[in-house]
């Protein structure tokens, strides 16, 4: 439990950063990058598939809990996207540039499209801003993932390269 605890704690801190007033007001983003999703991706890249599975579940449940409405959509999308990326990781030993790009785009779409669809079914609204939100969400996650990935490669594991 203590072994998994630190990963849950990191995920929790990332969600806190996502929701912080400082982050929102300072950067004034239209879409906040999904740090938790990037963290799950990073865990899978680092061959921590089991932990990624639990963290994905934890993040989904936590986001559903802080949602003002009672929903299951976050748990479903995050866990499903985690399983998807684990499956991809098992099929491909090493992710090359194109594969990483495709994985992050697909991962973001797996999270964003069901959420938008679910919202459409519950409220009956589907406006242009929804498509804009999906596009920016995918873009923000891709940029952030590459930033984290190259930071990891060129700064944290510099001596290993």
């Amino acid at each position: 439990m203590i072994y998994y605890g630190k990963y849950f704690l990191v995920a929790y801190i990332l969600i806190l950063i996502q929701s912080s007033i400082f982050f929102k007001k300072t950067f004034n983003f239209f879409v906040i990058p999904d740090f938790a999703l990037i963290y799950i991706f990073w865990l899978t890249i680092e061959n921590k598939q089991t932990i990624a599975k639990y963290v994905g579940l934890f993040v989904g449940i936590f986001l559903d809990l802080v949602n003002p409405d009672k929903t299951f959509i976050n748990t479903f999308t995050y866990f499903f996207s985690t399983l998807y990326i684990i499956n991809l990781k098992n099929n491909f030993l090493n992710f090359n540039f194109i594969l990483k790009l495709l994985t992050v785009i697909l991962l973001s779409l797996i999270v964003s499209v069901p959420k938008t669809t679910y919202l459409f079914f519950t409220t009956g609204f589907l406006v242009n801003e929804d498509f804009k939100l999906i596009s920016f969400y995918v873009l923000a996650n891709t940029v952030m993932m590459y930033f984290v990935y190259y930071f990891d490669i060129f700064v944290l594991k510099r001596n290993e390269v």
Binding site: I15, L16, Q18, S19, S20, I21, K24, V31, I32, D34, L63, V66, N67, P68, N74, K115, T116, L119, L133, Y137
Partner: peptide, 15 residues
């Protein structure tokens, strides 16, 4: 006092 915003991009709310 507003202390934070919803971490979910699909939810427009604050704490």
């Amino acid at each position: 006092k507003v202390i934070g915003f919803s971490p979910d991009n699909w939810v427009d709310g604050f704490f």
